[in-house]
């Protein structure tokens, strides 16, 4: 008896999917890389698109609080460093959008999700930069936290993401050193400069600790991401590692980390610290931070005001291509 044609094709597809899933599981088990042409489960693809595009958006939105000081940087050397840094962030955004594009989403689509408020970006960039010392604090604390989060991502199972992260991490560690140096210069300066530095550290310390995400027992996506070798360490582990890095650096700078309960616990082999204000974290996440509206407004404005330029470039390229065909 001959089975109807569709049935046998369906059976064949199912068999093929199972084989592909087995190959995928095998690659993950061996801690190998998944490449764009490899079969991957839909949920893995979706998780990566979400994470990589969020990361790209964070780079792009993250340009704003720092570009706020490009025109007012207090020396030409600082201006050059800051311009280079913000420009690096645009470059990171580009690599990351490209990595996400290999998963089958376009940059235009991701940009649209961002300006329509449908995509998230790191909440830290919803804080404002009222003083020059914020350039130091962002470099030292925000880029520092980003590095702790991102170094393990260099080994992420998805090839294009891992490779993009290798490049990004190199530049980020340079940024962090620059931030540290800004604060050091301020701390060795006048009374007003020292106050400016301490004030910025006070404002950015807690938000930077929140960058690692909620405590492990409240982090919904972590377990699956760890199973897929996208995420390598838990939020709390990374947070501890970050604080461990900050303590001696704060001492070298001469700034005080704004947590009276921060001390080394020999028995736990970890730092004791005050409870993080998760209410603030959730408020900013829910759109009620100092600059959520402003960040999105400005990105939308740049995107919309630039539309005629992008259209012109596309029209010109099409005309050139047509001319080439005609010739």
């Amino acid at each position: 008896m001959t089975a109807p044609a569709e049935l046998s094709v369906a059976a064949l597809d199912e068999h093929r999917d199972e084989a592909a899933q087995a190959r995928f599981d095998d690659l993950i088990a061996q801690d190998s890389r998944i490449e764009p042409r490899d079969w991957m489960p839909d949920a893995y693809r979706k998780t990566l698109i979400r994470q990589i595009s969020q990361h790209a958006h964070s780079e792009i939105i993250g340009m704003q609080p720092e570009s706020n000081w490009i025109t007012r940087a207090p020396s030409l050397k600082r201006k050059a460093i800051l311009m280079a840094k913000v420009q690096d962030e645009a470059g990171h955004g580009l690599y990351l959008y490209s990595a996400a594009q290999t998963l089958g989403i376009s940059r235009e689509e991701m940009m649209q999700q961002l300006i329509e408020g449908k995509a998230r970006y790191s909440s830290i960039f919803n804080y404002t930069t009222p003083t020059w010392a914020d350039m130091g604090a962002i470099g030292w604390l925000v880029d520092g936290a980003a590095i702790c989060n991102q170094v393990p991502l260099c080994r992420a199972s998805y090839g294009p993401y891992g490779r993009a992260m290798v490049r990004i991490c190199k530049e980020e560690s340079f940024h962090q050193r620059q931030g540290f140096e800004i604060l050091l210069e301020l701390m060795q300066g006048t009374e007003a400069q020292r106050e400016m530095a301490q004030d910025a550290v006070n404002r950015w310390y807690w938000p930077s600790l929140m960058m690692f995400g909620p405590p492990d027992d409240e982090s919904p996506n972590s377990a699956q991401s760890m199973a897929w070798n996208i995420k390598r360490f838990s939020n709390d582990e990374l947070r501890q590692r970050f604080v461990g890095m900050l303590v001696p650096q704060a001492e070298a700078l001469g700034v005080t980390l704004p947590d009276p309960n921060l001390r080394w616990n020999e028995e736990k082999q970890a730092y004791d610290m005050s409870e993080i204000d998760w209410h603030e974290f959730h408020e900013v996440l829910a759109g009620r931070g100092p600059a959520n509206a402003e960040r999105l407004r400005r990105r939308r404005e740049a995107h919309e005001e630039g539309a005629w330029v992008r259209e012109a470039a596309a029209a010109y390229a099409a005309k050139q291509a047509a001319r080439k065909v005609a010739a």
Partner: peptide, 19 residues
């Protein structure tokens, strides 16, 4: 030109004008 950074019509131009 520094004022264009983060306002440019596309990311490539944020980078180019910044450069």
């Amino acid at each position: 030109l520094g004022m264009w950074i983060s306002y440019a019509p596309e990311l490539e131009e944020d980078i180019a004008l910044g450069n």
